[in-house]
């Protein structure tokens, strides 16, 4: 009896659940002229802040993105401060004296090959982290790592959470928005400790150092990450994220306030 059941179970599971398979295939994909990619951040923490400028490559090329080294990069703010960034490594431009301040609007201007790309971003009030801790998942008994933080009241706050494992930024991120009438303690589980639950890399092992950044971002940057998150997978019409940079450049420019915490996974 037991054997029969096992056989039946095997037939069903094999035919229904495991008949799906994945394989790498060769596709003859279309190519595209190189597009300009800009990524810039200003934090409410000490600088230097970086602006990286690169170009896209075709899908079947290696993941080596040509640095744009002939750009003039300027960051200014609405208090009249302005700084021309200097090139550090190829394609990475850094500030030397700018210090990000909450509430200010920062304007990025990039000149490359006679074209000008601009973006502006306003640094929101930070949300203070209360604690970092483990909790159990809703599904399947996995363990999660969560943050408690205080949500600033009476406005729509936009968040992005990224995390680092042993100082290496993990793929993927969480974004959400929140609006409460009072300063309210809010809990957010941002990752699972069970490597099976996630598609992000690197995978977590015992003894690893997990650092988390809670970023308060403005609406334009939130829209960028929201639309970047919906790309791929089951989406029937994948498209490029909505950038806050003008003139068709890819990427984003974000002035954000950030709070950080760390935990060692046991």
């Amino acid at each position: 009896m037991k054997k029969n059941r096992t056989i039946l179970f095997l037939i069903v599971t094999v035919s229904v659940f495991f008949s799906s398979c994945q394989q790498v295939i060769q596709l003859d994909l279309d190519t595209s002229v190189p597009h300009l990619v800009i990524q810039g951040n200003v934090y409410d923490q000490a600088g230097p802040y970086k602006v990286k400028i690169s170009k896209t490559v075709n899908f079947d090329a290696a993941n080596i993105y040509p640095a744009v080294t002939n750009a003039t990069v300027t960051i200014s703010d609405n208090a009249g401060l302005s700084e021309v960034l200097s090139q550090d490594t190829a394609g990475t431009y850094i500030t030397s004296k700018l210090h990000g301040k909450v509430g200010r609007t920062y304007i990025l201007t990039v000149n490359v090959d006679g074209k000008t790309y601009t973006a502006s971003s306003t640094m929101p009030v930070p949300a203070e982290i209360d604690s970092i801790y483990y909790k159990n998942s809703l599904f399947g008994g996995s363990q999660l790592i969560a943050l408690d933080f205080i949500n600033p009241p009476n406005k729509e706050n936009y968040y992005r959470i990224i995390h680092f494992i042993n100082d290496k930024q993990a793929t993927g991120f969480s974004i959400f928005s929140k609006n409460t009438s009072q300063a309210e303690k809010t809990s957010y589980a941002f990752m699972s400790t069970n490597p099976r639950d996630t598609t992000t890399t690197p995978k977590l092992k015992k003894g690893d150092k997990v650092a988390v950044w809670l970023e308060c971002i403005d609406k334009g940057v939130f829209e960028y990450f929201r639309t970047a998150n919906s790309e791929g997978g089951q989406n029937a019409s994948p498209a490029n994220p909505v950038s806050n940079i003008s003139n068709g450049a890819l990427g984003y420019f974000s002035a954000c306030s950030v709070r950080k915490r760390q935990i060692v996974f046991q």
């Binding site: 596709l27 595209s32 597009h35 690169s54 896209t56 993105y65 970047a228 994948p238 498209a239 890819l250």
Partner: peptide
């Protein structure tokens, strides 16, 4: 819609899309 290229943001590979 398949990608026509790729680029890097936050150290992560992002696909570039052109025509729907």
């Amino acid at each position: 819609t398949f990608p026509t290229g790729k680029y890097e943001i936050d150290g992560k590979t992002v696909m570039l899309y052109s025509e729907r």
